[in-house]
Each structure stands twice: as structure tokens, then as C-alpha cells.
Write a protein that binds this DNA or RNA. Structure first.
Lengths: 224, 224
DNA sequence: CATTGTGAATCCGTTCACAGCG
DNA sequence: CGCTGTGAACGGATTCACAATG
């Protein structure tokens, strides 16, 4: 029984961890409904997942189910939390208290256990010293490194204009952040020992545009 | 010379179109610098792309370069715009005038040609009738279908709370939207003939969490 | 006996290496 | 001659089909 204890496993694809996050959310829903056990077959039917894929994904981390029965939800939920590192509180700071930064920091889903958004940062003196709608303090943009360290933040979110993204990320890293999500439309170079993910909201419309174009007969029609 | 005229090509992966969007952005930068011609080799050096991949990606849509020389930037730029459907204006409406909706609608990068954000929608009577910082009118959330149609919007962005996401998307579709970006943390079922992409901001932290956990020695340590 | 866990088969995207061409 | 365009090799992820098993 190849039980793979936590932290001991081969590198896993991002697609897999993404699906496991989704699966965890489904388990929470089912748990809330009082369901105690679920099979991969039922997960497929109810949530549109692929049952074989669920099993393969889980297999990379160990054995979590009971043959002939399925998965006991509380067990799988807890094991998954462990696998995804969600069994441990993580302090988050958000650089940039514009609409995007505030949207993230105040979001019921974003700022919820095990994640805690401890501070926002902004360079606007009018904002510094105030707090977001849900009470997250807005600190001075010049204090990012110091405050990140003081708060013990492991995760930094970059929600500043493109021009400021580089220095902002550097300050987060200097303050000890080990993971960064960058929402500025500028891919940030890698920092040693820091997990960095760029999310370019700008490009989201481009993706849709292509799909629209692909479903159209034949636009303006360039003369031959 | 397998020139593939616009609209005539095999289905292409999302990864490819994403890279082409990125490439187009690079071409704009180079064009702004007055560079007239660029080779895939140079694109690799300067922007960290993969030259072979650039050529393969482009190959799926036709032949765009000059052998022995490289790509003439204005030509490739225009052809790419055509391929990605960016040579045609697209009206966008954003449902939800909360922080996220406002952040998107007012973003210099989001609301810029060929995309035009024509309206925001919200159910809050205090917001309806006002406008965003950059002057985009906020219309009544009950008018989504009608206004979407009246404005001729092809793209709808869902930036409302999870509970409202389903009906909101349905209203956008009813109004004629053919592509939807959903930012609510609820995957929306497919609508016939509508390109729908879910972007779950909530899961962005989960992804980082896994990376943090993977780089940690061995957390709380469950006793053996 | 239904369901998991998994080797084998398949699919798809990336990388390589070079023929073809301006 | 240099670079594009591309067939072939490669690798990783998904899907399939079934043996193992509580």
C-alpha cells in the first residue's frame, strides 16, 4: 500500500494541483450537504469532472479511497488539505490598494482561512493610514519590505500599475515573501527561491476575441 | 505555399493563442522602438520566448516570414491581429460594479481598442445612474439582457458575487453576448454557442500554497 | 461486487534538426 | 548565407481497460 507520506512525491503538474483544488471545493460542498462518502463516478456525474482523472491525480500523492466504496469525504478533504498545503495558515499582503487590490483583499473567498490578508500597501498618502471596507489596514508603499517581514507574510500579491510592478515585487521578496502572484500586465523576471505566477487580466479579452473570430464566417474579407 | 486564409485552419490550442497574444504585445513594443524586422532567434533572446515554438505557432495559421530575413513587424502584427480577431471592434459589458468590475472596466489595458467597455451593471440603486471613474455608465442590473442587446455587446464579463453569477450570465447570453469571462468562484455550465471561460481568482492562492508546501521540509509532522 | 488504483495505449503539445528558400 | 517552415522524435498528460481489493 504505497502510502506516500506528505512531502514525499514526484513533481506534479500544475494541471493536477488545479484540479485537486477544484475537487477540494466540491468536497466542501458535499460535506456541507451531509454527504459522507462519494465515488469518482458520482463526482463525474455531479460536477462534470473525469473520474479516471480524479483517481490518477490522487494516485500521485497516495491512496485515499476505499475499494468498492469510494472516498470518505472528511478523510479525503483533510488529506487534500495536507497535500495542497492548506492545513497551515498563510499570511498574505496585497501591494496596491486600487480597485483590483481592494477587490482581492476584501473578497470573502480570497481572504479566508487558511489565508489571511494582513495588509494592503499603497503609495497614495490619502489612502495610507485608512483601511479597506473589511478593515484591512492600508500601509505605506515605501514600507513593503519592512512590513512584509514584520507581519510574517509568505505570499505577496502585486496589484499595482505595470511601471511599479518590478520594484514592488522586489520589495516583497526582500521582506521574505516566498510566493508572488503578479496581476500587473508585465511578466516579472524570476527571483531565486520564490514561486512567481503572472496573471495577465489584459489577455483575458484576447482569448475570447480569438474564439469569436473563429466562430465567425469570414470578417471584412481582404480582397484577393 | 500553404497560405491558410483567415478563418480556414485546424483547431488551435489555447496555449498557442495565448503565446500569440504575448507575441503581438512584443511586436507592438518593437514597432514603437522603430524596429522594422525581427527574427524568431532575436525574439527568443530579447523576450525569453522559444524560437522554434514561435515558428510552429505561426505555422498553424500560414506563412508570415521571409526566409533568410525574419518577420517584417508591421506585416506580422497585422496578420496576427487578423488571426486573433483583433482587427474588429468588440463591445464589452461588465456585470457587477464592485471593486473587481470597476478595476477591469477602468483599466487602461482592459478597456482599449479593439475592445470598448460600453457599460457596467449593478443591482445597487445607489450606483445605478452614476458612472465609473473613467466615465463608463453604470446601468441597472435588471436591464442586462436588454442593454446588452441595445449596445451590441459581444463580450460579457461576470464580476458579481457567486450567488448571482448564473442568472447574470444567462441574461448576458439572452442579450446576445457570444463570449463570457466569468470571474465568480462558480464554474458556469456551458451555454450553447457561447464561448465561456471561468477565471477563479480564489484558486490563485491555492496554487501558490501548493508551491510553498512543496518547498517546505515537512510541516506539523503527523506522528508515525 | 462496486470501486479503487494502475499499467498500457493514446493523444497532444513541445523540441529537435534540417530541408527549402529568399 | 541565414532564417523560416516542417517532418520526425520526444515527452508528458489524459484516457482506457482491468486486475486488485475492501
Amino acid at each position: 500500500m504505497t502510502v506516500t507520506p506528505r512531502g514525499r512525491h514526484a513533481p506534479v503538474s500544475e494541471a493536477t494541483t488545479h484540479r485537486l483544488s477544484l475537487l477540494l471545493r466540491c468536497l466542501r460542498i458535499l460535506d456541507g450537504e451531509g454527504v459522507g462518502t462519494i465515488s469518482s463516478r458520482l463526482l463525474e456525474e455531479r460536477f462534470g469532472m473525469n473520474s479516471a482523472q480524479i483517481r490518477k491525480d490522487l494516485a500521485q500523492f497516495g491512496e485515499f479511497g476505499v475499494r468498492g466504496v469510494g472516498y470518505r469525504i472528511p478523510v479525503l478533504r483533510d488529506r487534500l488539505r495536507g497535500v495542497l498545503g492548506l492545513d497551515r495558515a498563510r499570511i498574505v499582503v496585497v501591494a496596491g490598494a486600487g480597485n483590483l487590490g481592494l477587490a482581492l483583499a476584501d473578497s470573502r473567498n480570497f481572504n479566508s482561512p487558511p489565508f489571511r490578508v494582513a495588509a494592503l500597501f499603497d503609495v497614495d498618502p490619502a489612502k495610507v493610514g485608512t483601511a479597506s471596507r473589511t478593515g484591512i489596514p492600508i500601509l505605506a508603499g515605501t514600507d513593503i519590505a519592512r512590513q512584509t517581514q514584520a507581519l510574517g507574510a509568505e505570499i505577496g500579491v502585486v496589484a499595482v500599475p505595470a511601471e511599479a510592478a518590478g520594484p514592488t515585487a522586489a520589495a516583497l521578496v526582500a521582506g521574505g515573501a516566498r510566493a508572488i502572484r503578479n496581476f500587473a500586465p508585465t511578466p516579472l523576471g524570476p527571483f531565486r527561491g520564490v514561486a512567481l505566477k503572472n496573471v495577465d487580466l489584459t489577455l483575458f479579452l484576447d482569448g475570447l476575441s480569438y474564439l469569436l473570430a473563429a466562430s465567425e464566417p469570414a470578417p471584412p474579407a481582404p480582397e484577393p
